[in-house]
């Protein structure tokens, strides 16, 4: 009896195996002599790289591009070991990571591919906080504010005497690192008594359902939910500015907009398919970046990045 069952399990397994094999032959019949481009890194940059890789498929169907989402730090670890040729990054490489690359004799180039803006949002019924200064945001979010700053009128005397509720991304996210660095002054330094969620949809729902709520997340999420939330203009010292494609592009929406990058190593620069992919990336980014909710660089800047990359390719070969 036991034998029959084991045999039938094996038979099922084999059937699945064979089924699998025959189906790949149909879908990837033209992958001989293909190169594989391994990419890993930030999940913030992922949607852009994915869009580029998808379009690249129709140009160079033989090249296999794979993309992971280990996070900026996790991506750089693999990059420094030479496991990936391109790394997605939502912040510049850290000195310790650069050191690790150097130890393994990996040279690389940093290419800016887009801007990402952070949106500070409130409920549409909130009629007082049209804009907040960087200092006011700091007062709300710094670690010292925990359990002491709890009401809107403590931030600004003209605001109502009501408790606010705070929502933001969890401490593991790059967005949280970036917000705390830009506002509080130190990456990761924040009060602990806010409601964190890794799921931005939860943040959107939270702010949309509470008149006294305040939250922050990537600008892309605001655009998808513009009817449920209201943007707060941020005053970084030169008057309040609302985030928009223009203000992020021209740098006036400070300090809550940042460039995001890809890093390419010298091994990649020696492989024609990688060079082609990166060139394609910089040429097509302007259109695709907007598609996935980020803000493109000015055309001249993409041109400059392309030149920079071509020089790197020349020196690597």
């Amino acid at each position: 009896m036991n034998k029959h069952i084991l045999i039938s399990i094996l038979a099922i397994n084999f059937a699945i195996f064979i089924g699998c094999n025959s189906s790949d032959q149909n879908t990837t019949s033209n992958t001989e002599s293909s190169g594989t481009i391994n990419i890993d890194g930030s999940s913030t940059v992922y949607p852009i790289t994915e869009a580029i890789a998808e379009e690249f498929r129709s140009v160079e169907s033989k090249v296999r591009v794979t993309i992971g989402i280990s996070g900026t730090g996790g991506g750089f670890k693999k990059f420094a070991r030479g496991e990936t040729v391109i790394s997605d990054a939502s912040r510049p490489i850290k000195p310790s990571e650069a050191e690790a690359c150097k130890e393994n004799n990996i040279q690389y180039i940093e290419l800016t591919v887009a801007y990402d803006g952070l949106a500070v949002v409130v409920n549409p019924a909130n009629d007082w906080a049209q804009s907040l200064t960087k200092e006011e945001l700091k007062k709300i979010w710094e670690p010292e504010a925990q359990e002491t700053i709890t009401k809107w009128n403590q931030v600004n005397a003209q605001f109502p005497d009501e408790e606010f509720s705070l929502l933001g991304p969890g401490t593991a996210s790059g967005t949280f690192d970036y917000f705390t660095e830009a506002i509080v002054g130190e990456s990761g330094s924040s009060r602990g008594d806010y409601m964190p969620s890794e799921d931005d949809h939860v943040l959107v729902q939270g702010v949309a359902g509470d008149k006294y709520a305040l939250g922050f997340f990537g600008l892309a999420y605001f655009q998808e939910n513009a009817d449920k939330l209201r943007l707060v203009a941020v005053d970084g010292g030169n008057g309040p500015v609302l985030p928009s494609i223009e203000t992020v592009k021209n740098g006036t929406y400070a300090p809550l907009s940042r460039p995001i990058f890809i890093y390419v190593n010298n091994e990649g620069a020696k492989r024609p398919e990688v060079v082609k992919f990166v060139e394609f990336y910089l040429q097509e980014a302007a259109g695709l970046v907007t598609d996935v909710g980020y803000i493109p660089l000015p055309d001249s800047e993409y041109q400059a990045q392309l030149e920079k990359f071509k020089q790197f390719v020349n020196t690597a070969n």
Partner: peptide
């Protein structure tokens, strides 16, 4: 995720050594 499975893989794996 920790061992490095990817998010974007545009091909069906053909052998146990594929990503």
């Amino acid at each position: 995720i920790v061992i490095g499975a990817l998010a974007y893989v545009p091909f069906v794996p053909k052998s146990p050594m594929d990503e």
